Computed example of a mutant assay.
Amino acid sequence: MTKPLVSILIPFKNVADYFEECLTSIHLQTYEHWEVVAVNDGSTDNSLAIALKFAAADNRFKILTNNELGIITALRKAYLNSTGKYITRMDADDYMAPERIQIMVTSLHHNGKGSLAIGKVKYFSKNGVNDGYDRYEKWLNGLTSKGTNFDEIYKECVIPSPCWMVHRTDFDICGAFNPNTYPEDYDLAFRFYEAKLKCIPCTTTLHYWRDYDNRTSRTSEHYAQNYFLEIKLRYFLKLEYKLPHNLVVWGAGKKGKTIAKSLVQKNIPFYWVCDNPKKIGKDIYGTILSHYSELKKIENPISIITVANEEEQISIRAFFTNLELKDSKAYFFFC
């Protein structure tokens, strides 16, 4: 196999406590034909000095400065200054398994264009990983091991932002980092899905994901739940909902209400169902809530499920199975 160049894109800002471990993990990769394009996004600590130290010792490290502000513009600048046949992203506060790049390159080589190499991830933290991240890790890795990530894309981000690799030509087809949409990793996952890239199954842990209190995904407003819901609904309406479908929203909790309100604002007609006797029959945003059994009477339904409780989700799946309606075809879980 030839050894194509891999471009590893890294935006960084105030990660001095972790950056050396990140860059060292790249330096120690078993696959050696790579370039790092790291873009300083306004660091006020020692991050830039650390990056420059690696660049002075190894010319595969290229260090640039973001002339704008924010992770998207930093990623965009990194990509525009990259030259690799394969593109991957890295977070400056994490580290790679030594064989990560080799495994991903081999996967893309064997599967060809139209493929997306991914890997299992492992969260770690000096204070211990909370239950939410632990559940997300197990769920995400379960999908990755089978390559079925896109089956549940409306639940959460199914492609780990710092652990994917793709052909440059496919990345361009997907719009690269051109959109100014946050959260940028989830939007990119949807664009991979829209382009019908095929996830390559992987059973190996390739990325170690650090969690700490001031991590960007915890502190930035761009990663708040309302942004995730906006992206989910936008792509759902673009990719899944088509006439003569009859749109149904199942659930009248916070997420259900947020989606219903957005549909009303967009003048998109929908049915609204739930199993809460206190809400059935109520008029909310001009729509009367019905019992979910009304779904049996709706022709060609396509449903958004906003119920998060896992036991209730099992019952909901059974209900749709009895109606001979398929998951990710006739109904989609949004949580």
Rank of each mutant, 00 (worst) to 15 (best):
I231D: 08
Y154C: 04
H222E: 11
A318C: 07
G142D: 15
D91T: 06
A252C: 11
I302Y: 03
T321C: 04
A308F: 07
F190Y: 15
F332I: 05
F192N: 11
E194M: 14
K126P: 07
Y123W: 12
L75P: 00
L9C: 10
L239G: 00
E152D: 15
L289E: 07
T24F: 09
K297L: 02
L48A: 02
K254R: 13
I159G: 14
N149P: 08
T219M: 11
I50N: 01
I259G: 02
F334E: 00
P11C: 06
G147W: 10
Y186C: 05
R76I: 04
W209C: 02
F236P: 05
D131L: 15
R234V: 02
C199R: 04
G251L: 05
F192A: 12
Y223W: 14
Y79M: 03
N66Q: 04
F332N: 04
F171K: 11
K257D: 05
M104W: 10
C157I: 08
D41Q: 13
N226L: 11
I103T: 14
S217L: 06
Y208L: 00
Y193D: 12
Y227F: 12
F192H: 12
Y285G: 09
A252V: 09
L247M: 05
G114N: 07
E312Q: 14
D283V: 09
L28V: 08
V15T: 08
A252Q: 12
W272C: 03
Y79G: 00
V273S: 03
E184R: 07
A38V: 03
F332E: 03
W164E: 09
N309R: 09
I101K: 03
A49Q: 12
K77H: 10
S145G: 02
L323V: 01
E156R: 15
I231Y: 13
N276C: 02
R100F: 00
T2P: 05
E221G: 09
N81S: 11
A195T: 11
I259N: 02
D283K: 08
D41W: 11
F270T: 04
K198H: 14
N322I: 00
K329D: 05
L108E: 13
I101A: 02
M165K: 12
A308K: 12
I304K: 06
Y331L: 06
D131T: 15
A224S: 10
Y79C: 00
W272L: 11
L197V: 14
K146D: 07
E68F: 06
W209Y: 15
R89F: 13
T44A: 09
W34S: 04
S47M: 07
K238F: 01
K85N: 09
